[in-house]
């Protein structure tokens, strides 16, 4: 896990379910073959209704339809992010698109766990709702040790909740590395 995550924000609303993050029709692609796995980056968030894609204006795909990766680095969202299906393809698709962190007010349990155990991205909880305060395309900086998100160029600082128990797994890289370091598996 990096100490500093910076880049452009991509803003979504509440209850973004995993069918919106990666529609089921695309789950057929290999997650290891390079020619196929990049499809997940292209199709990430293509299930989000157009008017809600890239708030506040909408109509902004996460990844350009002709591209494999996104210009955005951090997803900002409201509550219950990642609800629905247990598909690990969802945090994987965001990672393939180039997303390094999600900042939401709350998460669905399985998405949160998949993000951490697979080491795909860092799921931060914001103390306050940021969906109306940050616009898609804003430059932001996350200072992980300090637990802050700074909006540029305004310099406005927002607090993030401590990562808690899962920080050890995120620092290890994924649940396998964590289990190895704990001597649980060899």
């Amino acid at each position: 896990m990096k100490n500093r995550i910076e880049g452009k924000a991509y803003v979504l609303g509440d209850s973004i379910d995993t069918d919106q993050i990666i529609p089921a029709a695309h789950l057929v692609y290999s997650m290891t073959e390079p020619d196929e796995r990049r499809m997940y980056g292209r199709y990430a968030c293509t299930g989000v209704p157009n008017e809600q894609a890239g708030l506040p204006d909408g109509g902004m795909p996460l990844t350009d339809p002709e591209a494999w990766t996104s210009e955005f680095k951090v997803v900002i969202a409201g509550s219950n992010f990642g609800c629905g299906s247990s598909r690990e393809h969802a945090p994987f698709a965001l990672q393939e698109a180039g997303i390094e962190a999600v900042v939401a007010t709350s998460y669905a349990r399985i998405f949160y766990r998949n993000s951490v155990d697979g080491g795909f991205l860092v799921p931060f909880e914001s103390r306050e709702r940021l969906v109306e305060q940050i616009r898609t395309g804003d430059d932001i900086v996350i200072d992980v040790p300090a637990g802050t998100l700074t909006q540029m160029p305004s310099g406005d600082v927002f607090l993030l909740n401590p990562l808690g128990d899962v920080a050890d797994i995120l620092r290890a890289g994924n649940v396998f590395e964590y289990a190895r370091q704990a001597g649980f598996i060899s």
């Binding site: 690990e88 766990r113 697979g118």
Partner: peptide, 8 residues
């Protein structure tokens, strides 16, 4: 669970 947890 996801694929990672299932693999573990």
């Amino acid at each position: 669970v996801g694929n990672t947890d299932a693999a573990l």
